[in-house]
Amino acid sequence: MVGIPILVIVLIVIYPTIWMFYHAFHDTNMMSLFRQDWQPVGFQNFEAVLTSERFRNSLWHLAIYLTFGACLQVVLGTILALILYESVKTGWMRVVLLIIMVLPMMLPPSITGILWRFLLQASNGAVNHILLNVGILEGTERIDWFSVDLSLWSLVIADTWQWTALPLLIVFSGRVSLPPAVYEAAKVDGASGYQVMRRLTLPMLREIIAIAFILRFMDAYKFVDKVYVMTSGGPAQSSELPVYIAFQTGIREFQVGLAAGYAIIIFVGAALIITLFLQYLKRVMRNAGVVD
């Protein structure tokens, strides 16, 4: 009976992975697949990826996206969570506000992408309309949100709108579970609001915030859905991320060997970063006394 799940895993995970590693060292493309005839090329695929400017640009885009997307979401989410906790004390009000803030997260990412594509349209999008109405834009002036300079930022905006609620939820629940007696002790000690935030709340929430960041990071690293529906990586590859290139190369252009090269390099990057995270989590758990 145990055999069946193992068989399934072998079929859908292990076999394709081996297949990918195999073709990463071959010049496989649509024609050679069709003819069942491909030649070994050594490390040429990896070389092609690492030397291509497209890939290097996409890494730069990823860095921007992580800094201003994932980090911003965590910072914003934390601030909102703490404001919500400190300023709204009524139980049902908190629930209502939380639900409202979490709503964007409940939409499918691709739908959110399409939504924001409409909102950010240059000629008759809602965002430009609002900017026009409040007087930031004048006359026939329009912001082209999907230009070379801005398309990556449009992605950041749409993604932040959708995902800020996740760190918010995590940090809020973390804050709720902090022991109230500690805060009362601080009150009796005479700590100021700033001292309480700086010396109590933030240090005690540090691990929680880090975990929220790890979650957002993992999601952002494989971010492809909104790129696909909002910008298709363009214009002029200005909003391409590594995973999107791999997808384009493999599924669209059927350059299977090259795409496998991309996939493995992305995988190695992910493995390195996840290892760092796991080290951190282990330390957190050791400090919390969960594991030895």
């Binding site: 007696a181 500690v182 009362e184 601080a186 009796v188 700590a191 240090p203």
Partner: peptide
């Protein structure tokens, strides 16, 4: 904190991330 009282709590209410030293020092830091 203006009343001139000091209180120990049943749960101790120590600051978990601070050392024993910092815990004891906290009223003075404030």
């Amino acid at each position: 904190y203006r009343r001139g009282v000091a209180m120990t709590f049943e749960s101790y209410a120590l600051y978990p991330h601070l050392s024993v030293y910092e815990n004891i020092a906290s009223p003075l830091r404030a």
